[in-house]
Design a binder for these strands. Structure first.
Lengths: 115, 115
DNA sequence: ATGGGTGCAAATCCTTTGCATCTGC
DNA sequence: GCAGATGCAAAGGATTTGCACCCAT
């Protein structure tokens, strides 16, 4: 499972991961994939993303970065981290929360779907 | 329904909205709430947010702003918009996408849940 | 024999949809 | 009587869980 997520460049959903793993290893079950994904996420091996659609998507790129999501076809791409650290501090000051992390997703159209 | 969402300061889920509306108007159905929420979202009267948990949450504050979410109790607060416009342009340049919008959520602990 | 991981299927949660009903015109 | 909105319940999709089973120890 880890291999598949690492090899994927398209931020696949659990369902897509299931299909791909199943191609190499027929008979694998839904539960195993979900259980393994949860494990990998807990160990910091992969990231779980909520990119606006219904299903969670997974990312083998663990480095700090953001995403762009196409509102038409659902494709997603990585973007180098764009948020200055001061923004997190400003958020803490404004709300009294202790910020540990953040998730930033741009919404728009991919090259193929036109502007 | 619009009154309830506007009056709420806690980014309620559809379920919470159902309960609150039901308090003032007993016998109201799940479907009506979901249908009305979808309508209001489509008309730009309220915002639908995906703040990391399972259920969608709604926000009566339509102005451009971001959010902080408590990873322990799930509470969410508004944060003044923190992202410079250049960041969106940088994302466009890096990916070839046309960015129309973005969603930014900080993750951390709220004052009550401690650091 | 035992423990951990696995597949299958049932269960759960959130949300949507079908359908008969009720409202106002 | 008709159109549109509504309530209820069933349907749907994503994810989790229960349970029997199999492999390696």
């Amino acid at each position: 499972v880890l291999d598949v997520v690492r090899a994927a460049s398209d931020h696949p959903t659990a369902h897509q991961i299931l299909e791909r793993v199943g191609a190499a290893q027929p008979g694998i079950g839904v539960a195993t994939v979900y259980r393994t994904l949860a494990l990998l996420v807990a160990h910091g091996q992969i990231l779980e993303l909520q990119l606006g659609d219904e299903a969670a998507r997974y990312d083998g790129n663990v480095a700090r970065h953001d995403h762009v999501v196409c509102t038409r076809c659902g494709a997603a791409a990585d973007v180098p981290a764009a948020l200055p650290v001061e923004a997190a501090r400003a958020a803490e000051a404004a709300t009294g929360y202790t910020v540990q992390d953040y998730e930033l997703a741009f919404r728009g159209r991919c090259a193929g779907c036109g502007g």
